[in-house]
Design a binder for these strands. Structure first.
Length: 798
RNA sequence: GCCCGAAUGGCGGAAUGGCAGACGCGACGGACUUAAAAUCCGUUUGUGGAAACACAGUGUCGGUUCGACCCCGACUUCGGGCACCA
């Protein structure tokens, strides 16, 4: 078959007929199918795009044949760091490179034969889009969900700029190699933690992969524990958070994070130098590094002492970087006998280690003993089980006004300020008189100026553009300055699924009634690497907008599917340095998009991915030629009754089995098994070999079953068959269950769990019948136990 | 380090706790052909055996079960994420 010519022919026809456009009048039967939109980084679509978009399109096309009105838009997540880095390197403006990349990708996406409705396209770098990203930020601000606070950033002292985590390699700047420091800067945060509880509980009702839900649960990290207030010997106090209040009697020192504001206040003169040095050193370590259990613990004594509220004991206050300022209260009570990190630390620095928990059976296991047990050396709590002691001790503290029960989340607020050029400007104004003032909504968008020196020089790129920075305060009219930062691109992508149905709306970010109708997204498909960030941010934004009354659903994505990663032929992740990058165009230009799509369907388990091996592509082309040949033969069989009824029934069984499986498999994103069933049906047709009406009907069913996978080719075969209209709008075949009932089945017979043979009996044969057949096969008569699952298994225990 | 996955023939992969290896690639054999290609048909987990058949077999070790690729525990290796790549 001339795949390329066939594709050209049908693409043209579909475009003329606007076959893929979304019919808004049929919105009641809508299915919103969405792929994570693409980042226009390289110039060409890569294999991952094909795998995500091409195969999700198979699913979208199935839904259309099943009678749904599918909303399937496409767009670009166009702001971001790579374009800016590219600009710094080459001098090509991010807007220019991005627009060029988008133009290329749009053309390739159209060539892909995917059924996107381009009328709803969005680009996040378009002012018509980011106007509403800024609007979103303002709504969050107005509802108390955006606030400014100090937070650490990676600072390269040599490049004189903030750099991304990704650009930090072994603690050094990837560009210049200088040691990266952490610096505190004022930044905007979105208060996602306000929604921690609902983000956690809402997971239960989502049709998402269990592993993704688990990852989000762990990311949110709810933990039940308590706070304990330690008074300082010289006045003042601080709280620690602990999940093991039962061990409080064994607390022999306390530790503050180096960034803890109290450190500077309490440190004694003789310790100040060491503490300052330690703090400076801590700014050069990453969190992953700091919390690593294998790296040696470091820390210094502050010279200060605090009082353990449960027993009045004086304990030293240390500073150590294994305590993070961002989790809990930034301070921990150390119980070396029952915590591995504290144990290691105490051993190193000669701090007391005192057992306060022993095993429930009273045995004294080795320290550190981190399991639950019962309290010893713990005053009133002696003998209590861990769980009871936690509550009892926290209750006692509550009575003293020194703490109590507390739930903490690991989830942190979302930092959205970026000291970068290529992003949506933050629509806030800093006025010397009025303080922080939001840009009035009618003044949106705050346009990103084109002429900006985006090379690193110590400030945000926009901060050096006086024309941009200087503005009037909307409140007092006086001279004021804009916020020089741009928004994290995750803000842009946290709401784009709401914008698609409203892509052309210039009055609002989205129309509430229309959005309530089209959303939530029914199926969302994208990489598992987004499990905790993008997917959590989107859920947060949806819930926040719901609480503001802008929409009336709780979750943006009802069902989620992750595609796997396609590796290079060497089984390694594709990368330029490895030189193992596969360019889909090399194959698509030879075999066409249908063959390539079917190859991608068949060669991988969709959610697992795996190594690319090109052998499979000609194999698919051969298979499709095989389909063409048998269909050509079958089309001549129209109206000819079958000569052999039993043989015809076998083919009809195969037809109905394929019909039963294909739709279900595609719905489950099990594309490889769907294609396997198509191949089985094709094999059955070859075996049948009589050009009669049974073969003719089988061919028509095969074409319809296959149409979502190879739409152009099936459209061509459908036309050759003399059928009217587009096969892509023909109803997807449904199995006739009656044709799938068999009067006899082979049932495996096991003796003591080992397979000995099969017996052919009715699928609903009684236990006595099955027993008789099995014993005859085995040639035995004594049976201790007989296990029989009709139609499935017989196991004889003799 | 922490969180989450994955591991099945020569290869890609398939299997609601019930005949492991569907479907395909590759390989081998046959038919057709002067020949080749293409096509059609067949064989193909390993070991032993002429065969019937027997034994072994789903990363490693252990457990639960009449029965385990599947459930549980420990481990090994590989992959994703770890909050400023998206």
């Amino acid at each position: 078959m001339d795949y390329l010519a066939i594709e050209r022919k049908w693409k043209k026809k579909w475009e003329e007929e606007r076959l893929d456009s979304f019919d808004t009048k049929r919105a009641d039967e809508k299915k919103y199918v969405l792929e994570m939109f693409s980042y226009p980084s390289g110039a060409n679509l890569h294999l991952g795009h094909w795998y995500n978009f091409g195969l999700t399109d198979v699913y979208a096309r199935l839904l259309r044949m099943q009678g749904f009105e599918v909303f399937h838009p496409m767009g670009f997540d166009a702001f971001g760091l790579p374009a800016e880095n590219y600009a710094i390197k080459t001098g090509i403006h991010p807007k220019d490179s991005t627009e060029k990349n988008i133009a290329t990708m749009e053309r390739q996406l159209k060539d892909m034969g995917a059924s996107f409705d381009w009328d709803y396209e969005i680009k996040t770098c378009d002012p018509a889009y980011y106007k509403w990203t800024q609007w979103l930020f303002l709504q969050l601000y107005k509802h108390g969900l955006a606030e400014e606070k100090l937070a650490p950033v990676n600072w390269c002292p040599s490049c004189n700029t903030v750099i991304a985590n990704e650009q930090v390699v072994d603690g050094c700047c990837e560009r210049c190699g200088a040691v990266v420091e952490r610096r505190e800067m004022r930044q905007w945060f979105l208060k996602i933690t306000n929604y921690a509880e609902e983000l956690l509980s809402g997971l239960d009702k989502l049709d998402w992969p269990e592993k993704t839900k688990t990852m989000q649960r762990n990311w949110i990290g709810k933990s039940y524990g308590g706070t304990v207030t330690f008074d300082l010997e010289k006045g003042g106090s601080f709280d620690v958070f602990t999940t093991r209040a039962d061990t409080l009697f064994g607390c022999s020192y306390v530790v503050l994070a180096p960034e803890h504001p109290l450190v500077a206040k309490i440190v004694t003169p003789d310790c100040r130098k060491a503490v300052e040095e330690y703090k400076a050193q801590a700014t050069r370590r990453s969190e992953i590094d700091r919390t690593s259990a294998v790296k040696e613990k470091t820390g210094v004594f502050t010279g200060a002492y605090a009082v353990n509220p449960i027993n009045g004991r004086k304990v030293p206050v240390w500073v150590a970087d294994y305590v993070l300022a961002t989790y809990g209260t930034g301070a921990v009570m150390a119980v070396p006998a029952h915590d591995a990190r504290d144990y290691e630390f105490a051993t190193k620095f000669g701090l007391p280690i005192e057992r306060v928990v022993e095993s429930a059976d009273g045995s004294a296991d080795e320290l550190p003993f981190v399991q639950y047990g019962r309290c010893v050396n713990s005053g009133f709590a002696d003998g209590m089980a861990t769980e009871d002691a936690k509550h009892a001790i926290l209750a006692r503290l509550a009575g003293l006004g020194k703490g109590g029960e507390k739930i903490t989340y690991r989830l942190r607020d979302w930092s959205v300020s970026r000291q970068r050029y290529w992003g949506a400007p933050i629509p806030m104004i800093h006025c010397p008189h009025c303080g922080v003032v939001p840009v009035p909504e009618e003044d949106l968008p705050v346009r990103l100026p084109y002429d900006v020196d985006f090379r690193p020089k110590g400030t945000s790129p926009l901060g050096a553009n006086e024309e941009y920075m200087n503005c009037k305060c909307p409140k007092c009219g006086g001279d004021a300055r804009r916020d020089p930062d741009t928004l994290d691109t995750f803000v842009c992508s946290s709401w784009y699924y709401l914008r698609y149905p409203n892509a052309k709306n210039d009055k609002a970010a989205f129309d509430t009634e229309w959005t309530d109708k089209l959303l939530p997204v029914d199926v969302y498909v994208g990489g598992a690497e987004h499990a905790c960030m993008h997917l959590l941010y989107s859920r947060f934004v949806t819930k926040a907008l719901r609480d503001m009354g802008y929409l009336h659903f709780d979750e943006p994505f009802l069902r989620l599917v992750h595609q796997g990663v396609i590796l290079g032929p060497d089984g390694k992740r594709m990368s330029k340095t490895r030189g193992n990058i596969i360019n889909p165009d090399d194959y698509v230009s030879v075999y066409g998009s249908d063959v390539f799509r079917m190859y991608l369907c068949f060669a991988f388990s969709y959610t697992e991915g795996g190594p690319f091996q090109s052998d499979g592509i000609p194999a698919i082309a051969k298979y499709l030629d095989r389909v063409e040949r048998i269909c050509g033969k079958a089309f001549g069989g129209r109206g000819k009754p079958p000569a052999d009824k039993a043989k015809a029934a076998e083919l009809e069984y195969a037809v109905n089995y394929a019909a039963k499986c294909c739709g279900a498999d595609i719905s489950a994103f099990s594309f490889n098994t769907a294609v396997a069933r198509l191949m089985e049906l094709t094999n059955a047709m070859y075996k049948y070999d009589d050009a009669d009406e049974v073969l003719h009907s089988a061919a028509l069913t095969l074409i319809k079953l296959m149409a979502p996978v190879t739409p152009h080719i099936c459209e061509e075969l459908w036309e050759r068959a003399g059928e009217k209209g587009s096969v892509l709008r023909a109803p997807y075949p449904v199995a006739d269950e009656g044709k799938l009932v068999r009067s006899l089945v082979e049932v495996p017979v096991q003796l003591l769990g080992r397979l000995k043979g099969t017996v052919t009996i009715a699928p609903d044969a009684s236990e006595d019948e099955a027993r008789a057949a099995a014993l005859a096969l085995l040639g035995i008569s004594d049976v201790k136990k007989f296990i029989y699952k009709p139609g499935r298994i017989i196991n004889v225990i003799a």
